[in-house]
Computed example of a mutant assay.
Amino acid sequence: MARIAYLMMLTVMVVGAFMMVEQGEAFTCGTSQQERTKALCDPFHRGEVQDPSAECCSALKAFREMAKTREERRELCRCVQERANRNRAGVPGPEGRIPKIDALPGKCGLPFIYSADRKFDCNTVN
């Protein structure tokens, strides 16, 4: 009987630890992958090149794959909107960047799932 109780307790602990790891991997803004994607894709966003590099597209794909659930994809959308709408010295304003940011998934062969435009409602992302 004690052995069964021990095995049940061990099972609960393993399942609990697994759930904690899964929750800890949730999508968050400001990750190193987001910064890498931004750095690799900035030449396209700024209009310095006509097409994004293969490295940019690979980074974008990896960044988007981090958002596995509907809520994480919505957070990704909000994150992109926040970053796109910041004014930074030497970088075109949001009105210049947003069309390029929105065109990037198509240029990289990825589906369009959100817009960087603040008028787009991220709560509609599936």
Rank of each mutant, 00 (worst) to 15 (best):
L60H: 01
G24A: 14
K100D: 01
A17R: 00
G106C: 04
L7G: 05
V125R: 05
T37A: 14
K119W: 03
F112H: 15
E35D: 14
G106L: 11
A59E: 02
R86Y: 03
V15R: 01
K61S: 14
G16H: 01
T11Q: 02
S58G: 15
A89T: 11
R70N: 10
Q33D: 14
T11C: 07
E75P: 01
C56A: 11
H45C: 02
K100S: 07
E22A: 15
F18R: 02
N87V: 14
F18L: 13
I101L: 14
L110A: 06
L60D: 00
V14N: 01
F63N: 02
S115Y: 06
T31L: 11
M19H: 04
R86I: 05
G90W: 07
L40W: 05
T11A: 15
R88V: 09
I98Q: 02
L110Y: 12
V49G: 04
G24T: 06
A62E: 15
G24W: 05
E55I: 03
L104W: 02
R74N: 01
A103M: 10
I98R: 01
E65R: 11
A39L: 11
C29Q: 04
N87K: 09
Q33C: 02
N85S: 10
Q81W: 08
P52L: 04
M1N: 08
R74S: 02
G109Q: 04
R73Q: 15
M8K: 05
M20R: 04
G24Q: 10
V80H: 02
T11G: 10
L60G: 00
F63G: 00
M20F: 06
K107P: 02
K61P: 02
S115I: 13
D42Y: 05
G90C: 05
K107V: 03
P43I: 06
K100V: 00
R64E: 13
D121P: 08
K38T: 11
R46Q: 09
S115C: 06
F18Q: 04
P92E: 03
R64G: 08
P111T: 09
D51R: 10
Q34R: 07
F27C: 04
V12N: 00
R97V: 12
A62S: 15
T69L: 10
V12R: 00
V21N: 03
G96C: 03
